[in-house]
């Protein structure tokens, strides 16, 4: 469980270099590389930027500019579970505002923040294509429909028990 920071860092940079090596020859390789890194690490570490820039013959600023342009890419490590709440119109028509407020209150964080125990990160999202059954929430690759405050609390409980089980192993 408790790897040293240095050990983690060197693992990460190997992973980043592998992602770059695998994809750099594709036309327009930057987004695929960033996706591959975030898929493994859940974020794009600052240390990746000069490595990618060098491989693609770009400036650090170019790469940083792309990472920061897209909402999908995170700059810092998120919590164990990233909870995305849809803020778009269809979800608003079914009470997404109350759901957002409830989520912030119960988790005691705002969007783009992580709970103190490192369990949950809250993010806004603009449409998950589940608009026939709004409001929608996404956690990892699962979409949850017809959300309300009660179902949200149950979801939190389930996610929490899932991560305590993992820790117990």
């Amino acid at each position: 469980m408790c790897k040293s920071v240095a050990e983690n860092d060197s693992q990460n940079s190997q992973l980043i270099l592998d992602a770059i090596a695998a994809l750099k020859d594709q036309p327009g390789a930057l987004l695929p590389i960033l996706h591959k890194i975030q898929n493994s690490l859940n974020f794009v570490p600052e240390t990746a930027i000069p490595l990618i820039a060098k491989a693609l013959n770009l400036s650090n600023a170019d790469v940083h500019g792309v990472v920061s342009f897209y909402h999908h890419f995170r700059h810092t490590k998120p919590g164990v579970h990233v909870i995305q709440i849809c803020r778009a119109e269809s979800c608003q028509s079914m009470g997404a505002k109350a759901l957002e407020q409830h989520a912030r209150q119960i988790l005691e964080i705002d969007y783009h923040q992580t709970t103190d125990d490192g369990q949950f990160t809250l993010e806004p999202v603009y449409c998950l294509g589940n608009c026939a059954c709004s409001p929608s929430v996404r956690v990892a690759d699962e979409i949850y429909s017809d959300m309300n405050t009660q179902k949200f609390d149950e979801l939190l409980k389930n996610l929490h028990s899932r991560s305590t089980k993992v820790e117990a192993l």
Binding site: G28, L31, H35
Partner: peptide
């Protein structure tokens, strides 16, 4: 197949092309 990255503007065709080229949309 290329995956987008959460930018609504990339639904605009020229912005999408920029994104495919690996740039800001």
């Amino acid at each position: 197949l290329r995956m987008g990255a959460g930018a609504y503007i990339c639904g605009e065709e020229t912005s999408l092309l920029e994104s495919l080229e690996g740039k800001r949309g």
